[in-house]
C-alpha cells in the first residue's frame, strides 16, 4: 500500500502546489478563472507616445 502512495508522489506534489495556490488566492482576494467582467483602467493610460 505504501508503495502505491509512493508511486503517486508527483500527484501529491501537484496537490500541494494547488493547495498553495488556493491559500494564496484566498489571502490575496484573487478569484481564479474570473469571468465576472471586471475591467481595469490605469490613470496613465496604456503608456504609448502621444503629443
Amino acid at each position: 500500500m505504501i508503495e502505491e502512495y509512493k508511486k503517486m508522489k508527483w500527484f501529491f506534489i501537484w496537490v500541494l502546489l494547488l493547495a498553495g495556490g488556493m491559500v494564496f488566492s484566498n489571502m490575496s482576494g484573487y478569484r481564479v478563472f474570473s469571468s465576472g467582467g471586471q475591467q481595469q483602467w490605469k490613470a496613465g493610460g496604456p503608456g504609448l507616445y502621444h503629443k
Binding site: W14, L18, M22, S25, N26, V32
Partner: peptide, 20 residues
C-alpha cells in the same frame, strides 16, 4: 471588503482531483 470565495475552493479541488 475581504470576503471568502467558495468558488476558489471548488475550482482548486476540481483541478487537484483531475489526475485521480
Amino acid at each position: 471588503y475581504d470576503v471568502p470565495m467558495w468558488r476558489n475552493f471548488f475550482m482548486f479541488v476540481i483541478f487537484a482531483l483531475l489526475p485521480v
